[in-house]
Design a protein around this nucleic acid. Structure first.
Lengths: 197, 197
DNA sequence: TATCTAGTTTGATGAACATCTAATTAAATA
DNA sequence: TATTTAATTAGATGTTCATCAAACTAGATA
């Protein structure tokens, strides 16, 4: 459990990495270990004795804390002595929780845009009008294609049955889906392609 | 999932509560939710759409975030609109991780002391000498008694067999254990009393 | 009032995790 | 070299958790 050691967590890092840090902190025993190590560096066996935990379990916890860069280990004699490491803990919580704007924001505005488009064109699950702009049409199609089960085939009639729930102009929708590559047609049989994301 | 709402997390709070906060933060989806809500208050359905998650799942996540006081909800029309709440995120990480000294420290020094005593008097599992100070003798006895199985009876001879592994002066050890109430003797039969912790 | 929409709760399922015991590795001493 | 001690790894087990579908609750509108 030592290979992935000590990435310093730059502000640019992704949500998974940030969540890993919090997961490492999200256990009472590990918080206690940090408190104990803060007082003075300690080795696993000592911690096991104090915490009344199996040595293997303590090793497990220490591994997690070291993995996210909260602890560093130094080997002396038998012992693997752990100490607090890095300035990670001096950061305000918000610095770890919130992504720097370019990162999430872009992603989010993207989503927000999708939302806005869908909200504009759908009403009560029906497609009120077919978007004239290609980009918006794409968003609508990506939404509609999710009504088709992956791993299943549809006759053209079945495709139409799905589409008519959205809009009467099933021909335009069907052609759009195929043109966008969201449905494939082979021998008059339709099938949904790669999952939406 | 709304009953346990919004405890402000005083610095005096215990490790479990602190761990709960970190657990709530220890999931990428919940971090994303916080980032999204930071931009503007949002309701569950919107988040479900953006995150491409089931509404029930989003509700679950929002519940956890609200439970530890990171979000607050306000009801408007249909919607339950969530916003960031409290100054929790402005705290430096260390303020949440580290207990105020009186709490852990006392507990810990206690343990550290035990450790030191045991290390002083035991060598390779044997008791090198019998402590003259009562307090230290107690610590040693509490350690030794763990070699006795609870829920089992021992003859005096069996007791001695266990004790001689620690030190040849079995009589002193045996008497000490009984005096300390760690072993009880009834009709020449010994039995361990309440579990160590 | 009947219907629609958003939210929550419940139950089921699979994944992740904490913990232990046992086996293994590695360092230190007899 | 053989034994002891600390640490890690592997395997097993029970618990917690994330997720979804379905049932249910409660505003809002027709």
């Amino acid at each position: 459990m030592n290979e992935a050691a000590t990435q310093p967590l730059t502000p640019e890092q992704n949500l998974e990495a940030r969540a890993e840090l919090f997961k490492a902190l999200g256990h009472p025993m590990r918080l206690l270990i940090l408190n104990l190590v803060k007082m003075k560096p300690r080795h696993g066996e000592e911690l096991a004795a104090i915490l009344n935990l199996n040595a293997a379990t303590v090793s497990h916890h220490l591994g997690k804390l070291a993995e996210v860069g909260l602890l560093t280990a130094e080997k002396t004699q038998y012992y693997q002595v752990y100490s607090l490491s890095g300035a990670l803990l001096d950061k305000p919580l918000r610095d770890v929780v919130f992504m720097p704007q370019p990162g999430v924001a872009a992603q989010v505005e993207e989503d927000a845009y999708r939302q806005k488009v869908l909200k504009t064109f759908f009403k009560y699950g029906r497609l009120k009008a077919i978007p004239a702009q290609l980009k918006k049409f794409m968003i609508v199609l990506e939404h509609i294609v999710q009504e088709f089960e992956p791993e299943r085939t549809y006759t053209e009639r079945e495709v139409n049955q799905v589409l008519v729930e959205f809009n009467d102009d099933v021909a335009t929708l069907r052609r759009g889906l195929v043109d966008a590559g969201l449905l494939v047609r082979e021998n008059s049989i339709y099938r949904r392609t790669a999952p939406a994301e």
